[in-house]
């Protein structure tokens, strides 16, 4: 049987040591196909060497999370951008 993938919800643990907020609520754009989705909704293969998050639309690798002994490392080979959830902007617009 093929080991079934999980989804981006499962990245909350591996990323908890790195970011002050819950990164699974971040929205990202796939650099390969342009699909925009919340990180919690991407497809995650939780390989014991590291979690591999793939685009739910085109399966391109968006993010790789390795719990390296020197500190958690996040590779982002396939994200054009990511954006925090509403309310994550600290102050007013640029130019205020």
């Amino acid at each position: 049987m093929d080991p079934a993938p999980l989804d981006g919800n499962s990245l909350a643990g591996p990323l908890a040591g790195l970011f002050a907020t819950d990164v699974t609520l971040v929205t990202g754009r796939c650099a390969h196909c342009g699909d925009v989705s919340v990180l919690a909704a991407c497809v995650v293969y939780r390989h014991p060497m590291g979690a591999v998050a793939r685009c739910r639309a085109c399966t391109a690798v968006l993010l790789v999370v390795v719990e390296h002994p020197a500190g958690t490392r996040v590779g982002m080979p396939g994200l054009a951008w990511w954006q925090g959830p509403a309310g994550s902007t600290r102050t007013g617009a640029v130019g205020d």
């Binding site: 919800n9 909350a12 643990g13 908890a16 819950d22 699974t24 609520l25 919690a40």
Partner: peptide
Amino acid sequence: VRGPLGGYF
């Protein structure tokens, strides 16, 4: 145990 985790679901 690590958590509670996940703010989406």
